[in-house]
């Protein structure tokens, strides 16, 4: 299941683990990323609180936790090579994985069609 937030994050659910990243639209708005700060594995995330930081040449932007949960894995490759996020934001440019406190909360987020309409 693939869902999107109005803060331009995507989540892909596999069991109770969601992979999280920023959308193609977000990377286009931000421009070339030069720094990514990821949460720590084990960190408790609260929906709407800062979970990661992405910085372009121009500015730093916080990436908010899309739902409540706990970080299970982070993508160290994007911390080493932030340009990966620009190149493949919804694939190899994922940021972290989290165990959702309530997987059913995915249904409160936008599906792909709704997000496409949202960014029009």
């Amino acid at each position: 299941m693939l869902r999107f937030t109005d803060e331009h994050e995507w989540l892909k659910l596999d069991g109770e683990i969601a992979t999280v990243g920023i959308t193609q639209h977000a990377t286009e708005q931000l421009g070339d990323l030069v720094f990514v700060e990821l949460p720590k594995v084990g960190a408790a995330l609260i929906k709407g609180a800062a979970a990661a930081v992405v910085e372009s040449v121009k500015a730093a932007s916080e990436v908010y936790a899309p739902l409540d949960g706990e970080v299970t894995e982070v993508n160290d490759a994007v911390a080493a090579s932030p340009e990966t996020v620009n190149a493949d934001p919804q694939g190899s440019g994922w940021l972290y994985r989290m165990r959702l406190k309530d997987p059913a909360a995915m249904e409160t987020l936008m599906d792909e069609a709704a997000y496409a309409a949202f960014t029009q």
Binding site: G31, D32, V34, S56, V57, K58
Partner: peptide, 12 residues
């Protein structure tokens, strides 16, 4: 113009 399609890094 903040940037063109090439992007800030390439332009720099």
């Amino acid at each position: 113009p903040l940037q063109y399609p090439a992007g800030q890094l390439k332009e720099h």
